[in-house]
Design a binder for these strands. Structure first.
Lengths: 226, 226
DNA sequence: CTCATACTTCGACCATGGACGAAGCATTAA
DNA sequence: TTAATGCTTCGTCCATGGTCGAAGTATGAG
């Protein structure tokens, strides 16, 4: 890092997109693992590890080791308050910012986020299930309703198997590109698996892109109407 | 700029040392010209111009043209508040940051700041003159006392010529690397000129470094004791 | 008028640091 | 034990963007 006043060090830390996404994710107050943060930021584990080292070294985050996981949180609420302040500034000035085109349109449209569908189509899936009453928000949590349960069965997802796991069925995930919530958790993972099994889309190797076929996209859009 | 959340754009803006120095200087509330800000940041006018464009485009600063000057201020007090918040965070975490070695020790020790001496030796000059009663602070301004007047004459600076100019005799300048005040203004410039004329030091071409000779440094230290 | 100053734009260079592959260590599961 | 997972370290590559020289525009001074 170049020579400069201390304020620049903090700014540079927040200024990197990957780190900013990590910090944004941690604003929920939840402790997240390094792998989860890597997915949130859209980078590999190695890169995330380097970022998390820098954040911890600067005292913005804290990590505690638990088993073979490392859980990260914001160091304290002052960090949260500063991030909130900067976000407020960003939001107000946002409207007059230069047009921000996505680097890779395919990546923005549909990609894998850890193990579930993200991007615009991920947001659509979530919005659609919320609108149809299959999902229901309860504060920070998301609940699967009876209606949603039935929908999932019909869609071909085996819910009984999922229930045995310890992972939460539904988890909200803040979208990297769209800054909108989409569906993570066991159900989110299962739905993505089912979508690929149905042949609607396939994961491109060596990238996070999920490529929908033309017919697959049509089927997806009728299954998850807005 | 890369793709990323809005918060990263603000962070990256603050994260550059040159821009951080500019913003820090503007925290005084005074309107400063582009040239002054360039000197404050330790960059050339072109570079400063590019930075000021970005800051203005993002809505962090505002500039109004007056004659052939452009005066810049922070856009509003929310920007000031955010900067203050980030500074507070930087100050608290500062003590546990990794050892920040100056990239170029010579640059940190003595360099030219626009037209006067800056760096550790610039700070020393200022502190020494303040301690000996040659300078006196009066709010934001710095005054040259009778004692300081006599000292300057003895040191070989022609004060009469300086008085004819419109520039203030003494001006405080916030140090780029040390974050300490040092002496700018007509006197600051004249003192540096005299120091090089005496052969104590010489400007290195192609850099901002002021290289003191061993004997020159000794002479400087006895002329400006702490 | 000419000259000097303040600032901007253009172009090119290059250092910083973010990216990932490969390989390693540590912990847990089987 | 072996295998799998979570994470880190090392090494390398390369895009971003900060930097300045040169040249151009505008404003004011003499």
């Amino acid at each position: 890092m170049r020579e400069g006043p201390d304020i620049a060090r903090i700014g540079a830390l927040i200024g990197d997109p990957a780190r900013a996404n990590m910090l944004t994710a941690l604003m929920s107050g939840k402790a997240l693992t390094a792998t989860e943060l890597a997915a949130e930021a859209g980078v590999t584990a190695q890169t995330a590890s380097a970022h998390l080292s820098k954040l911890a070294e600067a005292g913005l985050t804290e990590g505690r080791k638990q088993g073979r996981h490392r859980y990260f949180t914001l160091a304290d609420d002052e960090v949260g308050a500063v991030l909130e302040a900067v976000m407020g500034l960003a939001a107000k000035r946002g409207h007059l910012r230069t047009r921000t085109g996505p680097k890779n349109p395919a990546l923005r449209e549909a990609r894998v986020c850890y193990n579930h569908l993200a991007g615009e189509m991920g947001v659509r899936l979530y919005d659609s299930m919320l609108a149809s009453g299959g999902l229901q928000t309860a504060g920070q949590d998301i609940l699967l309703t009876g209606k949603g349960d039935a929908f999932a069965c019909e869609f071909g997802v085996d819910l009984d198997n999922l229930n045995t796991t310890r992972r939460p069925m539904c988890r909200p995930c803040l979208d990297w590109s769209a800054r909108r919530t989409h569906l993570a958790g066991a159900l989110g993972q299962a739905l993505l698996t089912r979508i690929t099994d149905l042949g609607w889309a396939k994961r491109e190797p060596e990238s996070r892109i999920i490529a929908f076929s033309t017919s697959g996209k049509k089927a997806f859009e009728s299954a998850f109407p807005l």
